[in-house]
Design a binder for these strands. Structure first.
Lengths: 256, 256
DNA sequence: AAGTGGTCTAGACCACTTC
DNA sequence: AAGTGGTCTAGACCACTTC
């Protein structure tokens, strides 16, 4: 593990354990330099990681402090609050960088939930013009196309429509669709997934979607359209995922 | 302007002008050090900014390359694609760090659109228990509470419910609700807004919301619940904003 | 005046890719 | 073997806050 990662992790542990409470002042940068035998830039790097996670905030001339964030993220669900609302959402998906598992399978099985899939379509086709543009390929190139519903503990949560260029991710089999396609891309093909560009919207379920997700037609769905990129910048997937609005949420920490 | 900001901006301009095309290789770090008369860490910092924006990707041992992102972000709207969909969304709100204006007023008026508000409620109350928890205050403390509808070119887009502790943002007047409350917080009160923690969901419009947003009851809305923090970590607002799903979207670049 | 974080230098050393 | 980005040092200098 890198030095700045070690330092960041140590501090994060102290915050999570309550050893460092909200509004507490962290040791100064120079203090930590001495304690870890590193130079300022390394401590600064560690602080940046934690700042990005929304855990701390540095104030020039004053010090670095633990942010008061336990409330929002510990409750597990947002409160009913202003409008009559239901309980806990099960498909919670964080934006936070680098320490969250990617994809539906990884984020849920990491929490000990059973993930399953129903596959409604799996074919090789020419992508629609707009999809080809997003994938940086020609509409005459071939892509895998599949539609599947992801379930948590047997309950349908998300319907996914995905295009993947066969030249980039060759050898995809129907079998893999029942498990993690990202695991196939990373482990079997040895490719490195590096980023996603997303657009998030709220839409109503079509009749077909409502049936597949066991909802009423026009029920609100959280839609995430995304292009996934490999580390060399090649787009490897275009997908649209629509999730039951009552059971899904996205979390985000936005540092200005 | 800081050196790394200058370098990042120069490169970004070259990408936006097309001078650096997708998949082009950037000058090497050492090259740029020479050219700008700076050290490696400074160039690296510039690269980090652009990496975070999703514009470039560095590959150790090989070089740094322009990512192929024009498609997703240039179209102005996502394509109809798989499911029958409508046209351009007007309320587009990026996640990207540090160069986007914050809040509804700033992001839209920056693009030359007229922003107006309808205020449905403005009062001082004790916050619900859950809101008090998020704001790190007692339920017996007082908060401003207001509900307003934000309009673009006269058309209602978003309905907002906001709580702000009166001890943190004293002196809020009804007048300000017709303009930017964030401008009041930053410019009039001199406070520094530093981050937001958000949860994003899809919900159906209540009857009242449907009427205020001129939609059908149960129409899909994109909901953003957020706690806003000042630079010293004090929560200054808890708000829930629900936006017309047909006219709003969130954008995000997620680097792993 | 003393303390604190932010930027930056000039370089060393390393891991990895490319040829 | 040569080239490239990533981590890190030991410090200088600065902007800002606190007292």
């Amino acid at each position: 593990m890198l030095k700045y990662e070690t330092i960041a992790q140590n501090i994060q542990s102290r915050i999570e354990s309550g050893d460092l409470a909200p509004n507490d002042k962290l040791p100064t940068v120079v203090d930590l330099c001495d304690r870890y035998g590193v130079s300022k830039i390394t401590v600064k790097r560690a602080f940046e990681i934690l700042t990005e996670k929304g855990l701390i905030a540095s104030k020039r001339g004053s010090g670095t402090y633990v942010k008061n964030t336990t409330e929002l993220f510990d409750t597990g669900s947002v409160d009913p609050l202003l409008v009559g609302e239901d309980g806990t959402r099960e498909d919670t998906f964080g934006f936070t960088r680098s320490d969250q598992p990617i994809g539906f399978t990884a984020s849920h099985s990491a929490r000990g939930r059973s993930v399953s899939s129903v596959v409604y379509d799996f074919s090789v086709t020419n992508p629609p013009e707009s999809v080809a543009r997003h994938l940086n390929i020609s509409p005459y190139d071939f892509t895998y196309y599949f539609c599947r519903v992801r379930c948590l503990e047997g309950e349908p949560i998300t319907i996914e429509y995905t295009y993947m260029p066969i030249d980039v991710t060759p050898g995809l089999k129907r079998d893999q669709l029942y498990h993690s396609v990202y695991a196939f891309v990373q482990d079997t093909l040895g490719l490195k997934i590096s980023s996603f560009h997303r657009i998030i919207r709220a839409v109503g379920a079509t009749e077909e979607e409502a049936e597949r997700l066991q909802l009423d037609t026009s029920a609100p769905l959280l839609e995430i359209s995304q292009v996934g990129f490999l580390d060399d910048g090649t787009p490897f997937e275009f997908s649209v995922a629509r999730s039951n609005g009552k059971r899904s949420e996205l979390r985000d920490v936005n540092v200005i």
